[in-house]
Design a protein around this nucleic acid. Structure first.
Length: 208
DNA sequence: GTATGGATGTTCT
DNA sequence: GAACATCCATACT
């Protein structure tokens, strides 16, 4: 078993601008620590919900649900969408600004057997392809809302070190397009993805 | 591969 | 009462 060198993202290195953060997070690693073991996956798709964005949950100010959006960059904002699926977001910009990056899809790296169990399916490609599926695979719910993702803990964000699985691959080109599943401010190119990755959600036509 | 509809909790009008 | 940052099963091309 290869030793995996990996450390948390430094808050000071996160781009302040939300769209820049969304791009920055492509290729980084989400780590989930569970009693049964560790799950991790490479981020292959994100969306930015920026300042003044009518599609963003912070657009109308702070509420009991969305207060984590207003934390300083690098904290988890988790909410329930459509009463069915949890969504994992990374808060962005300065404290007091209600913006975030939605993590939409992961390429599974570690803990694949646990992910299969959490999802109740076998197919590797579908384990975390889509934000709701991702949350189910990593067993993410509201109990993780507000967590600091720049420190090792039950859920954190990591940078690859040498020796990591997938490390030898050339860094994927980053594509950019419109966000999925929204109606307000829908034309802005605020979705980022690893071009050509089979683990990106949505139709293949959106991943060229 | 694409298209459709139902389940579901929370927020807002 | 409607909208919603979704998923899944089913039907169809």
């Amino acid at each position: 078993m290869t030793m995996i060198a990996r450390h948390p993202l430094a808050r000071s290195e996160l781009p302040n601008d939300t769209a820049a953060l969304a791009r920055y997070l492509i290729g980084k690693v989400v780590v989930r620590e569970l009693p049964e073991g560790r799950i991790s996956g490479r981020v292959v798709e994100t969306e930015a919900y920026v300042v003044g964005d009518a599609a963003g949950h912070g657009y109308r100010g702070m509420t009991a649900r969305n207060r984590s959006l207003f934390l300083e960059a690098g904290h988890a904002y988790v909410y329930l969408a459509y009463g069915v699926s949890y969504m994992l977001n990374v808060s962005s910009e300065m404290q007091g600004v209600g913006t975030a990056v939605l993590i939409r899809a992961l390429e599974p790296l570690e803990g694949i057997a646990i992910m299969r169990r959490n999802r109740g399916i076998e197919r590797l490609r579908d384990l975390a392809r889509g934000p709701g599926r991702l949350a189910m695979a990593l067993r993410i719910d509201r109990s993780l809302d507000g967590l600091d993702l720049c420190r090792e803990g039950p859920l954190w964000l990591a940078l690859d070190g040498p020796g990591l699985a997938g490390d030898a691959e050339a860094p994927a080109e980053i594509g950019q397009g419109t966000r999925i599943g929204i109606s307000k401010d829908a034309d802005r190119p605020l979705r980022f993805y690893a071009r050509g990755s089979p683990f990106v959600s949505g139709p293949r036509s959106l991943n060229r």
